[in-house]
Design a protein around this nucleic acid. Structure first.
Lengths: 298, 298
DNA sequence: CAACTCCATCAAATTTACTGATAACCTAAA
DNA sequence: TTTAGGTTATCAGTAAATTTGATGGAGTTG
């Protein structure tokens, strides 16, 4: 017979209440049941937990030390029960989200921050992949959701469209490229490209499709600082159209006459399996991503 | 019926062994007992832990998450049982040692370091007090041992003598006090006193009996640095005789002709109650203090 | 296809936990 | 001092839990 939780629970109540009898009352048990549990605990651990030589049973130093450790065990037990309750309420144990690296990360990060701040029981994991890697990772890891630009339709997958985003290739009015016509790739490579730093990019071996591959690339920390860099004439780069509509109209930023096309539109898709309904975390993530991407596209 | 440890233990073994049957074998139980425990756990937590739709029972994601939390609980249970075992082997849950602040702390600290390095299960607490406070604290806190210069004999207390220590009031040969005769307190107060920093001295309101109370006191971090300070002529101060025997003989340090007496001898005593035998930690501390104080007195 | 291994289920046996009653003891108030 | 009220231990009987051993359906292996 080994240590059991119930005995520790009884010990805790006895100490809190100050006597076996009061503990029995609080636990809706007979007083003899309390005596039995305490005695059992003492036998199991081979430790005298209460000194019965005086009127009231007094906690021994060893008993106190074991009680303190016992409370930790009770806390852990409560944690487990609470976790199970959360599952019953519809929370998933974990949620894997795969994201295409070429999508703007700002709304994703904002959505994640909201989730983290809520301290939900679900363990969320975000994996950023590029190109074909997105869907591959989604399938390999049996992820719960992916956020992509495009995907191979598969049965049992549902796609929710997010607001369309159009990127425009621009530079400042004063920039050398702004007044150039019929720009080709070689022209671009002679200038500094501004792009957004992706914190998930550990190595430098990955370029997203919106990057030209010149040897002078400046990494900015968000579209706002990228825009500031562009305005300063630091370089050229892709920007979401709605973020620079005013500057394009005013002429402070100029759409480049690039032969490869100066506009790139796409509609991000939130894809997830239909065979299992989304849990609470899934719903939250879905809604939060919709919210943040809508806010991003103004 | 609530969560119990045994079910988590069974869950852990089932997952380790990979099947209910193998777990039953390892636990020397019937296979149906394993089924029963797992089913009970699932009912208690209202969570499907194993997916039985295929041949082998497969752990669900929720089951895995609960298993991980469950292992923590098992670890805590093991910790409690181990603690109880230690008690049975004669370790005390805690040990309070009260020390007279006027004794050299170096051997005490060395002894404590040895104890800490052994990672014994007993929680040792050292309290440094001065003058009458030592015995008072010892009695008030029902401490297990005190290290004193002197004490009021009380029945049920046993005293073990440590090697006698003699302190000598000295200064360097070049120091102004060295050549002075019939030194009184006012003479001393005109010079810098070197004393040893006691890390337990939180406020400055306490002076030990070996300190003259001048307004220029230098605190050193051990007898070796104090000796170095004395040799340099930085000031005067008390030193254990055996640490400066050579210098006194050579004349580089000079015993001061102080009217209050230039020598102070005492025999530290290790005092502890006899009504309860010392536990393992008590024995260790006793021996270690004997060792360190003997080594200190060379 | 035969021999295995997997797990669920059931009744019976066994072990554990609890109840209610009683006794021995202590405390505090009358 | 007596009395009323509170403490815990113990015991026999009972209720509840766990375990066993047997059985069966289903998947796997060679």
């Amino acid at each position: 017979m080994r240590l059991d939780i119930e005995a520790l629970r009884v010990l805790d109540v006895v100490i809190q209440e100050g006597s076996f009898a009061k503990a029995a009352n609080r636990l809706h048990k007979a007083q003899s049941a309390i005596s039995y549990q305490i005695k059992k605990l003492e036998d199991q651990l081979d430790v005298t937990i209460f000194d019965r030589s005086s009127y009231r049973a007094e906690l021994t130093p060893k008993g106190k030390a074991l009680w303190i450790e016992g409370k930790r065990l009770l806390e852990q037990a409560a944690r487990i029960e609470k976790l199970a309750d959360h599952y019953s309420e519809g929370w998933e144990p974990n949620f894997d989200l795969v994201i295409d690296a070429s999508l703007p990360m700002e709304p994703v990060m904002k959505a994640m921050k909201v989730l983290v701040d809520r301290e939900i029981p679900t363990k969320i994991q975000v994996k950023v992949e590029a190109m074909r890697g997105v869907q591959k990772r989604f399938e390999q890891d049996q992820a719960h959701m992916m956020l992509v630009k495009d995907y191979q339709p598969v049965p049992h997958l549902k796609a929710v469209p997010l607001p369309q985003i159009t990127f425009v290739l621009v530079a400042a009015r004063e920039h050398a490229l702004a007044s150039l016509g019929n720009i080709n790739l070689n022209h671009l490579l002679e200038h500094v490209e501004l792009t957004i730093h992706d914190s998930s990019e550990t190595s430098t071996d990955r370029l997203d499709e919106h990057q030209f591959g010149g040897d002078r690339v400046f990494y900015m920390h968000g579209f706002m600082s990228k825009k500031a860099g562009l305005m300063m004439g630091l370089g050229f780069g892709w920007m979401p159209d709605f973020l620079i509509a005013g500057e394009l109209a005013a002429g402070t930023l100029v759409e480049l006459d690039y032969e490869g096309g100066s506009r790139s539109s796409f509609m991000p898709l939130l894809v997830y399996p239909t065979d299992q309904p989304l849990g609470k975390a899934g719903e939250l993530i879905l809604n939060q991503l919709l919210t943040e991407f809508s806010a991003f596209a103004e």
